[in-house]
Amino acid sequence: MTDIAIRTENLTRRFGDFTAVSDVNIQVQHGEVFGFLGPNGSGKTTVIKLLTGLLPLSGGDAWVDGIDVRKDPEEVREHIGYMSQKFSLYDDLTVLENLTFYGRIYGLCPEKLRSRIDDIVSQNVLGPYVNRQAGKLSGGWKQRLALGCAMLHEPKIMFLDEPTAGIDPVARRQLWDLLFDLSGKGITFFVTTHYMDEAERCSHVAYIYFSKLIADGTPAQLEAMPDVNPVGTRRLEIRTTQVTRGLRLVRKFQGVHYATVFGQSVHALVDGSFDQEGLAKLLKQEGIDITEVRPLTASLEDVFVELTYRRQAEMEGKHA
């Protein structure tokens, strides 16, 4: 038992000539909710498969709960819970039967199994549905049951691969509340997601892009990264009723690095030489109706978009 729940050193996985995961170093502390982000195909799921012992490592080392994944993948499986991207319950089994099945798979004795099922049912608020077939539950309840099934053996570390893909916002929030509740009890969560609001909630995030880890820290640390906030630039939010035309104009201005729309406003990264009033004036000259221009701090989305663009530019530069 160590202080560190998950640790990797130069974790690498190759499939033939293709390197899916390249020299990834991660440290996740016990009780953290670790958000693992990255575009599709960047290697997120492969990292989870490596850490859960489903795929052998091609290089580097990894420890989960202090257990060497290379040496004893089976031991790792008994200490972790894993909810895969397409985690499926058995639709024709009831909630209770699903839980009983997974409990038995983990070899829980009957008394232990009963008390664990009681715990999970009350903790995940599954009470009213225990005798309902899993196939007849709605998306959010399915996810709670799935989480329950993956936690019957009291794992300290949970791997969740896109747990909220395709469920409604209310169920999504409820699931996250549950995760924080559990993390308060000392359970570590390793969660992949595409939702930035979910990422903002995490205590620790990392961003993987084309097999390489390119950012790692708290959301606040990432938002303050120099790469995201280059010296001599500032972020501005332009509130307007004519976002589409506004965006088109802003993108044409000299000294605008990047602009995008958020609801009724345009977010732009501009040279320090631009100030709020100057930009507002320029736009008003073009006949745009400006409500307000104000400074903005980078969001996690800005961070990932910026980092992705930079990497793309670097890679293209390399090929050229």
């Binding site: 489903l54 499986r77 008994e78 894993y82 985690f87 499926s88 798979i105 983990y106």
Partner: peptide, 13 residues
């Protein structure tokens, strides 16, 4: 087809 088999493989079964 349902993906439950993959799920089983991460258990100690």
């Amino acid at each position: 087809e349902k993906g439950t088999l993959e799920q089983l493989f991460v258990t100690p079964v």
